[in-house]
Amino acid sequence: MRYLSWAYLAVMFGFILLPVAVLVVFSFQDGRLPVPPFNGPTTEWYAKVLGDRDLMAALGNSMLVALLSSAVALALGFLAAAGFAQTRLPGGALMRGLIIAPMTVSYLIIGLGLLQMFNWAGVRPSLMATGIGHVVINLPLCFAILSAAIGAPQKSALKAARDLGAGEAQVLLLILAPMIAPSLAAAFFLSFTFSWDEFIIAFLLTRFDVTLPVEIWSMLRSGLSPETNAVGSLVFLVSVLLVVTLELALFRKASK
């Protein structure tokens, strides 16, 4: 049983990590094709990626969209979660359901719907339109995480603060936000990752200024290339750094 467990663990780790390993290894391929045999390491593809204007522009765009849309989603989610925590609202279950609903709908459908509405309204595809779409998908996530974080202790602290004469803005900023700070950070981080990584909505709602996944997608059209490996590896590295930082900063603290 014990050996079977370790064997299974090894096989699954192999399956899970294989594509990433291949991606990273062949990003150093000295040659035009990222497939065996491995011709020896070179960093020329990384140099090429970092000198690629379109890619760097796309990276900047992605960063901008992810930061802004996550901030908006977090703010809206925080206010809504605080609102529902205050009191029982008439039709509360329905309203909660409405805010949560986009979480259970395919991104493709959200993107297509927005595309058609923007067409009708005469709004051109843009980073702004993409950002709006990303808020739609991340708002339910933030709302759910923050609602779960507001429990009985937070609710009584809010009551106590009001009892001591705090105004509504003070209650939210000085009491509630610090109390659920780890959840705020987690919600922002998750939203950022989802927006950073999101393809289909960005693909449908951008035209000239594109985000990174869309730019990578257009690189794929020209077939396999170590340059794509290099971009992919960089993106992977950034995500891993983010995850590890979060793991160390949040979960370690929480477990103590």
């Binding site: 780790f13 899970i16 594509p19 990433v20 993106v235 995850v243």
Partner: peptide, 20 residues
């Protein structure tokens, strides 16, 4: 963390890796 590491990389890149 290891078992879900590639979960956090770009969706497009992950599919591309499998194509490789």
């Amino acid at each position: 963390l290891l078992a879900v590491l590639p979960f956090w990389t770009s969706y497009v890149v992950r599919s591309y890796s499998w194509a490789l």
